[in-house]
């Protein structure tokens, strides 16, 4: 059965996925890796690929095609083709939830809202403006201000008994607000829950989250409570694939697998 791989070089993390299957719709994830992107994208791509191969127990030669995506997609010299992370996240989301979707990807540096029809074709997409508000970078900055590990955020938000309201769009202004709340003695969990709310508000401002909402990306992966909060805000369950941070890499691998199909099948809706 064909084996393909996807490498997603994001602003914060590099993700690699190796999949195997006759067709994308029935492909199985057999190897994956997540590591920091660092300053050498080519190196992190290679390392990620090797780690994913090791998990799959495969030699690189077994992989028939590799696609890359993400900001560093052009730095993956062993990938045959590149796709945008928008195409890749859409492919992965539709693979897991094959219906009309609104995909919300909250990444380290930017957010995307991608709308797909019931055949998986893209209707529209929006990226956030050139601003870190509402992205993983915003949470990273706030974690530094609060002197709390980012990995503690989800538990803290979940344990909140109240919630502060963050009023500003801007990461810098938000940091000032955080300091004001600290001075007032606001409980840390209430503050972190307020930060989560701020992230989700920024996403809801980007586009209407109609259809079935699927959340992907590293921020969703590390903060499952965000998904619960989003569900509450949109009034219905928001979904997430099994490994949301891998959605870009998995999607790139799915698109690589699709490209192996006879040409007449490639135009058929994705996975």
């Amino acid at each position: 059965m064909p084996i393909t791989a996807g490498i997603d070089i994001g602003a914060s993390a590099t993700k690699a996925a190796v999949i195997q299957g006759e067709v994308p719709a029935r492909a199985e994830l057999i190897g994956a890796a997540v590591l920091r992107s660092g300053v050498d994208f080519a190196l992190s791509a290679r390392q990620g690929f090797e780690l994913a191969l090791a998990e799959a127990g495969l030699e690189a030669q077994r992989v028939e095609r590799i696609f890359s995506c993400g900001y560093g997609r052009g730095n993956v010299d062993f990938a045959q083709e590149t796709r945008t992370e928008i195409a890749a996240h859409a492919a992965a989301a539709f693979r897991h939830f094959p219906r009309a979707l609104t995909v919300l990807d909250i990444g380290g540096q930017d957010n995307k809202v991608i709308k797909l029809d019931d055949q998986g074709r893209r209707i529209s997409f929006k990226m956030n403006r050139k601003c870190a508000a509402g992205t993983g970078a915003f949470l990273e900055e706030m974690a530094l201000r609060l002197n709390v590990g980012l990995q503690e955020f989800d538990g803290l938000a979940r344990s909140a008994r109240g919630e502060v309201t963050m009023g500003s769009f801007c990461t810098v202004f938000s940091a000032t607000e955080v300091l004001a709340h600290i001075r007032k003695g606001v409980a840390l969990p209430d503050l972190v829950k307020g930060l989560f709310r701020s992230v989700l508000k920024r996403a809801l401002e980007m586009d209407n989250l109609d259809q079935t909402v699927v959340m992907t990306g590293g921020v969703a992966a590390h903060n499952p409570y965000l998904l619960e909060m989003l569900s509450e805000m949109i009034g219905r369950p928001a979904l997430t694939p099994p490994r949301p941070q891998l959605a870009g890499a998995e999607g790139a691998a799915l698109l690589a697998m699709q490209s192996l199909l006879p040409r007449c099948d490639q135009s058929h809706p994705r996975p």
Binding site: Y71, R83, T84, E85, I86, A87, R122, F125, M127
Partner: peptide, 8 residues
Amino acid sequence: TNMEAFAE
């Protein structure tokens, strides 16, 4: 990225 995604 926006332009590439638009072409896709």
